[in-house]
Simulated scan of single mutants.
Amino acid sequence: MTVPTTGPLRVAIVEDQPLFRSMLEHTLSGTAGLQVVAAVGTATEAVRALRPGTADCVILDIDLPDGNGIALGVTLRRNQPTLGILLLSAHDAMDLLLDLPADVAAGWGYLSKTSSTSEEVLVNAVRAAAVGETVLDPALLERMTPRAGSAVARLTDRQYEVLRLLAAGLSNSGIGDRLGITEKSVQNHVNGMYATLGIDADPQRNPRVSAALRLLEETGPAD
């Protein structure tokens, strides 16, 4: 998936709560490099407004008054295979990303409305979804621990830390800044993590997406 190299990143918002929709629109409109092209409250309005090519990424509330946000996202993605999708929910429904049809599974992110998500996290998630990456809510990830016997449980502490930051949408440079290590060190940890998880360099699959989904699949709430 790619987005236009010129002009702002076009974002659409589908959120039924008027105040929250307005807050999202205000935040994203005030961010350099982003342009809100539509802000609607129902699935019906979204289908009407989001013709293929209208937006590069859409923020979707999972619970809409006239439909399910995930089903709407699948429809929009099949109409526009390059469309990034960022799901929002008031519930912890992050594992729903594991049930997406294979043909549309890349480029979906998930943020919880009730976590301490910052503007930076929101914007990073939008940008990542637009280029086909999978971004998971960092506050929810902090509450998860690897399942016993899983490949994720075999990662070193540092590799697991890198994986969690990768899944939260940080670049290798951003991970290095967060952990106080060089970008080359981050790449070494990423390579080791990919090897342990059995993620290869298949050009048809984004390894960062595969790693994020593996993290989601092989972790559970901390006791």
Rank of each mutant, 00 (worst) to 15 (best):
157 D>Q: 13
219 T>G: 06
154 R>H: 13
124 N>Y: 01
163 L>A: 12
129 A>C: 15
105 A>Q: 13
118 S>F: 09
9 L>A: 07
205 R>D: 02
199 I>Y: 08
75 T>Q: 15
6 T>E: 12
107 G>P: 08
123 V>S: 03
205 R>E: 03
212 A>N: 09
5 T>G: 03
187 Q>T: 10
169 G>P: 09
2 T>R: 11
182 T>H: 03
207 P>G: 07
165 L>I: 01
180 G>K: 00
121 V>Q: 15
183 E>V: 11
178 R>Q: 15
203 P>T: 09
57 C>G: 06
181 I>P: 06
120 E>P: 00
184 K>V: 14
147 R>A: 04
72 L>I: 08
205 R>Y: 07
115 S>N: 14
145 T>K: 04
169 G>S: 05
96 L>D: 09
31 T>H: 11
215 L>I: 02
133 E>D: 10
129 A>P: 10
88 L>K: 09
120 E>I: 06
195 A>Y: 13
118 S>K: 09
28 L>W: 09
115 S>E: 15
196 T>C: 04
166 L>P: 01
11 V>E: 09
173 S>N: 07
197 L>N: 05
174 G>L: 05
192 G>Q: 12
31 T>V: 13
54 T>Q: 04
222 A>D: 04
34 L>N: 10
35 Q>K: 13
79 N>R: 15
190 V>P: 04
179 L>F: 07
122 L>M: 11
29 S>P: 04
168 A>G: 14
193 M>E: 13
201 A>C: 02
40 V>R: 04
201 A>T: 14
142 E>P: 00
57 C>S: 10
52 P>L: 01
131 V>K: 11
81 P>M: 06
37 V>Q: 06
200 D>W: 08
56 D>P: 08
